[in-house]
Design a binder for these strands. Structure first.
Lengths: 121, 121
DNA sequence: GGAAAAACGCAACCGACGGTTGCGCATGGC
DNA sequence: GCCATGCGCAACCGTCGGTTGCGTTTTTCC
């Protein structure tokens, strides 16, 4: 009921650029700040900042090799993020279903003159 | 594949305070900036700003009655947002599954020395 | 009817964030 | 050894979430 959501994880995934970065890393296996920036509409420095954020919440991990720093997705952590997305979605969905069911019941019943919905003043 | 996500809708839902506001509006049916702010750790003005954002993307609608401005969730639009959450989640989930399957195949086969996944430099 | 209170809107301000430009430093190829 | 490549650090800018302060309108109540 209380939707225990890790706000850090969520907000990490909340940024559209970071989502595209995760998409790229997933589809290509790994990438550096430079390689990712070539496929994104932002500069390398912006990508590097996002990588710091993603690393801080554990969604990616880096392996330094010489002058290159390869990043790849931490699959377990991304799975956790996905679970949170679907959890919140499911919670809202169930509430919406319940509301719709109640609305239909009222529509059928018409015993209560409690003005439940869109009554304009 | 391209995950056509409405960034405005997503970012509206991306903020934790706005998520809590939607939760409150769903569970209580409706609310004003003042009533919501009493149940949130932020001021009325902050809530009012968030309501503007939510209204702009169509997630809530307002009905003014005298000095009060009642907000309620637009269920169809929230349903769209939920669909986007689950879509992105499903896309990542399927990629994760595919990666895991490939990893297992490599683990079993050991014919390719193409270092596809978690090979530490 | 008039004063106080309740609800709202507007504006200024502040810190954090996404993004850019510019520079310096290390590593690798020739 | 030299130069290109990749990265990190710092300064700066606009936007956003949040606050405080003040003014306006509507309701309440004597």
């Amino acid at each position: 009921m209380s939707l225990l959501v890790d706000d850090d994880l969520w907000s990490a995934v909340g940024d559209p650029t970071r989502r595209r970065m995760l998409d790229l890393l997933l589809s290509e296996g790994s990438g550096t700040a430079t390689s990712l920036s070539e496929r994104l509409p932002v500069t390398r420095q912006a990508v590097a900042k996002h990588l710091v954020v993603l690393d801080r919440v554990g969604l990616v991990r880096a392996t330094t090799a010489g002058r290159e720093k390869q990043f790849r997705v931490d699959e377990a952590q991304l799975a956790r993020a996905v679970a949170q997305l679907t959890d919140v979605g499911a919670a809202w969905d169930s509430r919406l279903r319940r509301i719709k069911r109640i609305a239909e019941t009222i529509q059928r019943g018409r015993d209560t003159n409690d003005n439940g919905t869109g009554q304009k003043q």
